[in-house]
Design a protein around this nucleic acid. Sequence first.
DNA 1: ACTCTACTATTGGTCCTACCATTATCCGGC
DNA 2: GCCGGATAATGGTAGGACCAATAGTAGAGT
Lengths: 270, 270
Amino acid sequence: MSTEYLFTPARVGRAGEDVALQIEAAILEEKILPGESLPSERELQAQFQTGRGVIREAMRALKQKGLIEIRKGAKGGAYVKQIDVANVSESLALFLKQQHVSLAHIAEFRESIDRTITTLAIARADSAEKQQLVTETKKLLECLDRPEPDMGALGEMDRELNIRLAKMTKNPVFEWIMQALQLGFSSQDYALYEDPEYRHKTAVNWVETANHIAANEPLRALSSIGAHYAMLQRCAPEASGDPRSASPPTDKQRSYNIETFDENDEESRS
Amino acid sequence: MSTEYLFTPARVGRAGEDVALQIEAAILEEKILPGESLPSERELQAQFQTGRGVIREAMRALKQKGLIEIRKGAKGGAYVKQIDVANVSESLALFLKQQHVSLAHIAEFRESIDRTITTLAIARADSAEKQQLVTETKKLLECLDRPEPDMGALGEMDRELNIRLAKMTKNPVFEWIMQALQLGFSSQDYALYEDPEYRHKTAVNWVETANHIAANEPLRALSSIGAHYAMLQRCAPEASGDPRSASPPTDKQRSYNIETFDENDEESRS
DNA sequence: ACTCTACTATTGGTCCTACCATTATCCGGC
DNA sequence: GCCGGATAATGGTAGGACCAATAGTAGAGT
């Protein structure tokens, strides 16, 4: 009963996009709220006075954007949903992957974000959250000491820790960016976790950082983070080159052309 | 001759996604390079042993992801292209829009990014780039003093300045994030520019910041940036200037993985 | 020999119709 | 009252036909 005549017939030539845009607009203007469903494909076909294929293509585009979710069967159809960060992450991940962006560049960005997040978390999170963070980091350390560490699980814990910390800023933007980054270069990240030294030092560093956060010691916490990224730089093997060669932190060797980084072959493992 | 038998017949039920995934994988593994074109839809239809509608929907999804570009006519088809930041931006913008992210939260994030960018730019950009930045900021100030300032042009200049500064970090990630942010919430940003005081102070602040950057004075430059965001907070209208008030420390606030749709009536205010 | 035009082949865009698979709902038998 | 099958609604697929745009080419005209 929701949609009487929201939609107008589509023009020719690019009808599919036209349909998609109209529906997207309706969703963004909240004429259709999350949880509600669009009319069935055959009904839309009638409203737009077009073929069903056009509607289906529009639906596919909207689904890809994360605006709708499609369910089969009776009472199925296209349900408007809240866009998930995962959509942004996927988009970012695709981009990073295709650009062959070096780990060094991402790490530098992450370090800057991590520092801000830590500072804000110390300022805004309550002591319970901070204590919880400490507990989780200790759990990570325990898992590490087991005989056969599960890389997947460890990576997952690391990811969750980062997101937990980001949540403590009380600013959702930081949380989303962190999630996007986590998903964005997890593939490269896993390789690092293969290094037992990196694994161990990372876990220890997490505990250290969490303790400093819990103790409301911003400078010490930032120092720990700096140590972590310095260590990452050392452990990063041939993977995407030396950070300094790609983006030197020292102001002595500047004026590098960005296009000249990452000359190593793409690891076509398998 | 390009694609012999890269693709295998798709399974039933979700054939469209299957096809899209296979093609996406082929692109990401660089079995098809940017600039090259995929086989025609009818050819793919044969290779995948499926209907043409399935292929078309897959194409639509890939196009939406920004992986391919579709041209009509003879020698048309799906051409693999480099993903543009615009895709990430659009995704992010959609997300921010639907989540009703407050300007305060975005501003806080931007401030942290801006500070890092400024620091890195001072360290890595050469003097020519810095001088160029100063020149551009002065140009912005000039445009502002004209009788009838064009909001669109001013916003554009501000955007370009931000991106120019981000480029000076020599780390493309910062550039992309800045572009994504610029495109992502430009709609909200324009409103601020309506305020003549904000306009003027922003321009003056830009010149100031650029001068400090050119003079290699990181602390003064950061101070300018802080002043800018403090001013933004004052000028921001009802948009709740303080991040902490916009997002109370309770995790009760509207989350993104929302399952609890608000039940308010669907009055479509127009 | 050059240029412009019209034709043609290729390819995406649309429409249609039929049928299959899945799922919520309803109805009848137990 | 409960359970299971029939039913209907809906997305998913198949295949064919035609339209529209476009690049290449053959041919007419100069």
